[in-house]
């Protein structure tokens, strides 16, 4: 490993990332809560890269089976999260475009 993330560095990352997440959500209007929850659901699909490495280093059959299920589910998390979020936000765009002619 070129970069080793030691305990204290991990804590720094953890703390700063936690503040970032909090700040992003804190200013969001209620109308975007569902899309944003869906969007953050997509973001933790990054678990895919960990699952890939775990399966890539799996030796026994049991490890391979579990690793395979892990990659499968992680890919599902990422792909499903993306599609669902994208579909929701797509409607927000079109409703904004329709806003002007809609108001009399």
């Amino acid at each position: 490993m070129v970069v080793t993330i030691t305990g204290i560095v991990a804590l720094y990352i953890f703390m700063l990332a936690a503040f970032t997440g909090y700040e992003i959500i804190a200013k969001v209007p209620v109308i975007l809560h569902t899309p944003l929850m869906s969007g953050s659901n997509f973001v933790h699909g990054i678990v895919l890269v960990g699952a890939m490495v775990a399966l890539g280093n799996a030796d026994s059959t049991l490890e391979k089976v579990i690793g395979f299920i892990g990659v499968f589910m992680a890919a599902g998390n990422a792909a499903g999260g993306y599609v669902v979020t994208e579909r929701m936000l797509e409607m927000f765009k079109s409703s904004g475009a329709r806003k002007k002619p809609g108001t009399h």
Partner: peptide, 9 residues
């Protein structure tokens, strides 16, 4: 990514 989602969530 996990921590951002954890705190935002």
């Amino acid at each position: 990514a996990g921590t951002v989602v954890g705190s935002a969530g």
